[in-house]
């Protein structure tokens, strides 16, 4: 594997040529927000939070899906980028009903964390607050569309890691929803193995264990690299 050198925020760094920008940026200890990216599953490029400026490119590029290139010069925190990240979070917060005070993941929510990090203290857009239903038909899990940010982590983990593909997205645009099976109650979907991976990777309180109360639902994604390394390399790293 060949090595390339590039500049990140004017610092010269080297990287493997098959790496994505995001990985290299994070290796440098630079904190860059992401919501749809998840180590262990394919990348979507949908949340647009990891956008970076690349010199010579007129467009902003999503770091999670952009391969590194020799001689690249990347900026991760320009004034414009930070402003856009804030606006994207505001848009996300306005899209559905994100009321932290009554949310099961309050305090452990990635959306909440990124908003706090970027200093989003108010939302300038109209709250759309559609009245969406909550699917509690599954024995152990609950799906609350009102807190979903459509990052599709659950869809990807169900398809790529568990291999069940119970979850998918229906509709399009603002009417997109995560569905289970043929848009039937989750509890009726026999393809679901109840493995709970979707719940663990969900960045918000949209997917949670039944019986969790406000702030109780803590999630962990570490299991993903655990099982993927185990599956592919027969190595279980403690």
């Amino acid at each position: 594997m060949s090595v390339v050198t590039l500049h990140i925020n004017d610092e010269l760094v080297s990287a493997r040529s098959d790496q994505k920008l995001l990985e290299v940026i994070r290796e440098q200890g630079i904190d860059i927000p992401t919501l749809c990216h998840l180590e262990g599953v394919s990348d979507l490029g949908g949340c647009r939070l990891c956008l970076v400026e690349v010199q010579g490119s007129s467009k902003l590029l999503a770091a999670c899906v952009t391969p590194v290139q020799e001689g690249m010069s990347v900026y991760t925190h320009s004034e414009r980028l930070v402003r856009y990240r804030r606006m994207i979070l505001e848009l996300l917060l306005s899209e559905r009903t994100h009321t932290c005070a009554v949310c099961v993941t309050n305090g452990h929510c990635e959306l909440q964390y990124e908003a706090a990090e970027l200093g989003v203290d108010h939302v300038r857009y109209e709250y759309l607050a559609p009245q969406l239903h909550l699917d509690a038909s599954h024995d152990r899990f609950t799906l609350d569309h009102n807190r979903c940010i459509l990052c599709q982590r659950c869809v990807r983990v169900c398809d790529e890691v568990e291999g069940a593909h119970t979850l998918d997205i229906m509709g399009r645009g603002a009417n997109s929803r995560v569905i289970t099976g043929l848009n039937r109650p989750w509890g009726d979907c026999v393809s679901c193995t109840s493995c709970g991976k979707c719940v663990q990777v969900c960045p918000t309180g949209a997917l949670f264990f039944k019986g969790s109360s406000v702030g109780e639902m803590e999630k962990r994604h570490a299991f993903l690299s655990w099982i993927l390394n185990g599956r592919e390399r027969k190595e279980w790293q403690w």
Binding site: G46, C47, L91, E95, L150, I169, G171, G173, A174, N175
Partner: peptide, 8 residues
């Protein structure tokens, strides 16, 4: 509906 800026 894939990316946030366009969807919302």
């Amino acid at each position: 509906g894939k990316c946030v800026p366009c969807r919302v």
